[in-house]
Amino acid sequence: MENAGIMTIIISAILVNNFVLSRFLGICPFLGMSKKVETSVGMGLAVTFVMTMAGIFTYFANQYILIPQNMGYLKTVMFILIIASLVQFVEIVLKKILPSLYQALGVFLPLITTNCAVLGVTLLNEQYGFNLLKSVIHSAAAALGFTLAIVLFAFIREQMETSDIPEAFKGFPIALVTASLLSFAFLGFQGII
């Protein structure tokens, strides 16, 4: 992965190794926020912003603090600290500058802190040994993959609202079955890289 081209990284992060459907990261918001298409788009955009920023910040923290001091064991703690601070910052700024978007995102915004896809992408950046440019691109592409998955899933769930579902499958069971089928579908991208 270290020597992978930029296009390869993008396609890999969005389709082949889709964070939700292949790596199974960020399942909580994927299931929780996908009841309506609008909210899922909002969630996807908020995650995209936080993931990209986290990709940049954690690259610097890793490169200039962790590696020189040989403190690799601290990266989870430090990355979480960075992500939590970023989410807080985004929340404060959005509340002031774009109250309407802040309203629309509601509780999803602070929930991004606990979105393991964000931590996952920062750890993977480090693991793959990406440089700054590749880290940013990989983070953004992973976030777009997350957005793609959650929006697709929201469209399907909106369709299911009008379907005649057996009583035992109503609600989360059918959502989980659907998610697994969607995951199967994304398995079809496996060979393209």
Partner: peptide, 10 residues
């Protein structure tokens, strides 16, 4: 170093 850097970042 670990304590200091985390505290400083915090």
């Amino acid at each position: 170093w670990p304590v200091g850097s985390l505290a400083a970042l915090g």
